[in-house]
């Protein structure tokens, strides 16, 4: 039993997390100590014990590095103890970000899959457009985000849509690349087999190319959903009045509210994790439905 734990992944991951937590707390002491000493000096407290110093560094209001405990307290306060409609609630900000992310991800992936189907069947598109799609993966196209937000603002398009547009184009490219790769993945033998049945293009597409493309599609969907979230967060930096994790990060950095930044970061990370996991579950369901080994 113990051996199984040791050989498995749970125990090592927990151990690494525990070590990280220890380092984190130590880091909090190290980074916040100067400020704490100043605080003691300002309060006219000349002699203080080590315990007092450490305790102080772990409970500052705007520490350089808040402790995981402080972040959890803040998360608890802003998620559970605040009404979800309030602008102080992380649930509210989370829903703003996630809804834009999901809308954009949906649009981007559908368009990406559509383009992939076209690219596989139309040679001129493959040769002329595809190199650009691939090249788009090597450049920071996220830099377009602020511009898109501002320009759409000119047309009075605000709120969800500009963010979704950014999330969409960020997911569009990886999905196209992955799906094209997947639709091309059947080997010549499998294609020849279909040809011996004199299957038409649609049959080859539905019975061979689409099933073969699924692992590739889902791998790129995972990348795409993560990219969508990053895109939404970055868009929220430019137009922060609508709220969202990006707005939270920006407000926190303006006012030096480090605990707020960290908790927004943790919440965003949790959302990303949930989204990627959901795609992973969909992946497993689809591949199992297609009879792949579990």
């Amino acid at each position: 039993m113990l051996n199984a734990l040791w050989q498995g992944k749970t125990l090592p991951v927990l151990a690494v997390c525990a070590v990280l937590a220890v380092f984190w707390y130590a880091g909090s002491v190290w980074l916040n100590a100067d400020m704490q000493r100043d605080a003691f000096a300002n309060a006219g407290k000349a002699d203080f014990t080590m315990a007092e110093l450490i305790d102080g560094t772990w409970s500052q209001e705007r520490p350089k590095l808040p402790t995981p405990g402080q972040i959890l307290v803040e998360l608890n306060k802003t998620i559970l103890d605040t009404a979800p409609t309030s602008k102080r609630s992380l649930v509210y900000h989370g829903s703003v970000t996630v809804s834009a992310t999901l809308l954009g991800f949906l649009i981007g992936s559908v368009l990406g899959m559509g383009l992939a189907v076209l690219v596989v069947h139309v040679k001129s598109l493959d040769r002329s457009l595809m190199p650009w799609v691939v090249a788009s993966q090597t450049i920071p196209i996220i830099a377009l985000a602020p511009m898109i937000v501002v320009i759409m603002n000119q047309f009075d398009i605000t709120g969800l849509v500009p963010k979704a547009v950014i999330a969409a184009y960020l997911s569009f490219f990886p999905v196209t690349v992955g799906m094209v790769k997947g639709l091309r993945s059947p080997d010549p033998l499998q294609l020849d087999l279909m040809r011996t049945y004199s299957a038409d293009r649609l049959q080859i597409f539905l019975k061979l190319r689409v099933p073969a493309s699924m692992p590739f599609l889902f791998a790129s969907l995972k990348v795409a959903v993560a990219a969508s979230l990053v895109g939404t967060v970055v868009a929220e930096l430019t137009k922060s009045e609508d709220g969202g994790f990006g707005a939270r990060l920006l407000a926190g950095s303006y006012y030096g509210q480090t605990i707020q930044i960290w908790s927004a970061l943790f919440a965003a990370a949790a959302c990303a994790w949930v989204l990627v996991t959901l795609v992973g579950i969909a992946d497993r369901l689809v591949t199992r439905a297609m009879g792949a080994r579990p």
């Binding site: 040791w6 498995g8 992944k9 090592p12 991951v13 927990l14 151990a15 690494v16 997390c17 995972k222 993560a226 979230l229 990053v230 967060v233 970055v234 994790f245 990060l249 920006l250 926190g252 950095s253 480090t258 930044i261 960290w262 927004a264 970061l265 965003a268 990370a269 990303a272 994790w273 990627v276």
Partner: peptide, 24 residues
């Protein structure tokens, strides 16, 4: 042991919006 502990974390972190640490 470290590999088994760090790899799942590494895979997880790769999917997170790390750019968010920028203000920090």
């Amino acid at each position: 042991f470290l590999q088994r502990g760090l790899l799942p974390l590494g895979n997880l972190v790769s999917a997170l919006p790390i750019v968010g640490v920028a203000p920090i």
